[in-house]
């Protein structure tokens, strides 16, 4: 590992800290910037005295700066506040729901990688140098249509077909594998299409590179060319959009959870917004945002390390 790489990794980690600070501040400001009084709608029909007491309880009567320091301090102690509605600690709410979301996102990611990648590489091999123009048109049409269809619609259609018409799979809830299939599919379709399009273009680009021509001129067997020369380079290129694909998966999960009534972070977030339960909204947003940022930084660092130029001092 060279000094240059260590310095770059250090820079990334520093950037991560900076971004996390910005995220925490933004999440904190969410409650401050809400139009009107955050407490009012939740507690309709309460007296002014009770309102003041609640305000003191949640620390909303202090100055913004004090509230901020309290918030950050609490964060470091694992305290994300309490739900306006149930007084339950937000941390507990999140802990109860996070597994369901992780399951969903994880399953969807697996589908995206293991379906999208091979599909795209195969399509690239078949359409390289202008072969099978019609197949190319078909590929692009199908991927753009499926990719543009809203995932909540796909989710609903899937539920309709498999749960109502054929009663094969359950709709709603989480915990079992069967309950994971339809939501994972619904989440995975759009990102799979995005990844497939990008990977196909990257594969075509790699196939047109001079070093592939060299391998061909050496009459190496096709499988060797693809596995050893094409795939590693495509993988790294695909990693650069890994962050975006991950964001698509997380975003999709948030919506699809609501369609399938899975008790996850997405439903917590939306329910919280609809009932003005700001601590819950803050907690869910924070966890989702931090996850995304950390994963992106990890991907960036991996790319830096894998870069062949990293090996030279």
């Amino acid at each position: 590992m060279s000094v240059r790489i260590l310095r770059q990794v250090g820079q990334r980690l520093l950037g991560l800290v900076f971004v996390l600070a910005a995220v925490v501040t933004s999440v904190f400001l969410m409650m401050q910037l809400v139009p009107g009084d955050p407490l009012v709608s939740e507690t309709g029909g309460v007296t002014q005295e009770q309102l003041d007491r609640l305000r003191a309880l949640y620390g909303l009567d202090q100055s913004v700066f004090d509230q901020f320091t309290a918030y950050v301090g609490n964060l470091f102690q694992g305290d994300l506040g309490r739900s306006f509605r149930t007084q339950e600690p937000v941390v507990d709410i999140i802990q109860q729901r996070i597994w369901s979301s992780l399951e969903l996102a994880g399953a969807a990611l697996l589908i995206v990688m293991f379906v999208g990648f091979p599909l795209a590489m195969f399509a690239a091999a078949a359409t390289r140098e202008g072969r099978h123009r019609r197949l190319e048109v078909g590929f692009l049409s199908v991927t753009s249509v499926l990719g543009a269809t809203p995932n909540y619609l796909i989710a609903t259609l899937l539920a309709f077909v498999f749960a109502v018409q054929f009663t094969l799979l359950p709709v709603g809830g989480s915990g079992s594998f069967e309950q994971l299939i339809l939501p994972a599919l619904a989440v995975a379709i759009a990102p799979t299409m995005s990844l497939a399009r990008i990977v196909r273009l990257e594969t075509l680009d790699v196939l047109s590179q001079d070093y592939v021509r060299t391998a061909r001129s050496q009459r190496l067997p096709t499988h060797m060319i693809y596995l050893r020369h094409v795939f590693p380079n495509v993988l790294t290129a695909a990693l650069t959009v890994g962050g975006l694909i991950f964001a698509e998966v997380i975003g999709g999960a948030v919506i699809v959870e609501n369609v399938f009534a899975r008790p996850g972070l997405g439903t917590a977030l939306v329910d919280g917004v609809l009932s003005n339960n700001y601590p819950v909204v803050q907690g869910a947003t924070l966890v989702l945002a931090v996850t995304v940022v950390v994963v992106n930084t990890a991907v960036d660092i991996t790319l830096d390390v894998l870069d062949p130029r990293a090996r030279t001092g």
Binding site: A247, G251, L269, V270, V292
Partner: peptide
């Protein structure tokens, strides 16, 4: 950094 956040999260 901004595009690494899911659109729905930013929109929310």
């Amino acid at each position: 950094t901004m595009i690494s956040f899911p659109s729905i999260l930013v929109a929310v």
